[in-house]
Simulated scan of single mutants.
Amino acid sequence: MLSLTHAAIRGSFINASRREIREATLPELTTISWDDTDFLGWRDRKKDNTGYVVIEIDGTPVGVRFTTAERKGPRRRALCAWCQDVVVEDDVAMYVARRAGAPGRKGDSIGTLICSDFGCNANVRRKPTLTEVGSGAEEDRIALIQRRIDGLRLRSDDFVRRVLATR
Rank of each mutant, 00 (worst) to 15 (best):
P61C: 04
V62A: 11
V62E: 09
V62Y: 13
G63Y: 14
G63W: 11
V64H: 09
V64T: 05
R65D: 06
R65E: 13
R65C: 12
R65N: 10
F66L: 15
F66E: 09
F66S: 12
T68Q: 11
A69D: 14
A69F: 07
E70R: 13
E70W: 08
E70I: 13
R71E: 15
R71P: 14
K72G: 08
K72A: 10
K72P: 02
K72S: 12
G73E: 02
P74F: 05
R75D: 15
R75V: 14
R76Y: 07
R77Q: 05
R77H: 08
A78K: 08
L79Q: 05
L79C: 03
L79A: 05
C80N: 00
C80T: 01
A81E: 15
A81H: 10
W82Y: 15
W82V: 15
W82G: 10
C83Q: 00
C83P: 02
C83F: 01
C83N: 00
Q84F: 03
Q84H: 03
D85C: 00
D85W: 00
V86S: 14
V86D: 12
V87N: 04
V88L: 09
V88F: 07
E89M: 11
D90G: 04
D91W: 03
V92H: 01
V92L: 03
A93K: 11
Y95M: 07
V96D: 03
V96H: 06
R98F: 02
R98K: 06
R99T: 01
R99N: 02
R99P: 00
A100P: 04
A100K: 04
G101V: 07
G101S: 09
A102D: 14
A102Y: 12
A102N: 07
A102H: 08
P103G: 01
P103R: 00
P103F: 01
G104A: 00
G104M: 02
G104Y: 00
G104K: 01
G104N: 02
K106M: 10
K106Y: 11
K106F: 12
K106L: 13
K106N: 09
G107P: 03
G107A: 09
D108P: 01
D108G: 05
D108L: 12
S109I: 04
S109A: 15
S109C: 08
S109V: 12
S109M: 07
I110R: 02
G111Q: 02
T112P: 04
T112G: 09
L113E: 13
L113D: 14
I114W: 10
I114L: 14
I114G: 04
C115R: 06
C115V: 15
C115S: 13
C115I: 12
S116H: 06
S116D: 06
S116E: 08
S116G: 05
D117A: 12
F118K: 03
G119M: 12
C120M: 11
C120W: 11
N121Y: 06
N121A: 09
A122F: 13
A122K: 14
A122G: 15
N123G: 03
N123S: 13
V124A: 08
R125I: 10
R126K: 15
R126W: 09
K127Y: 11
K127Q: 13
K127N: 13
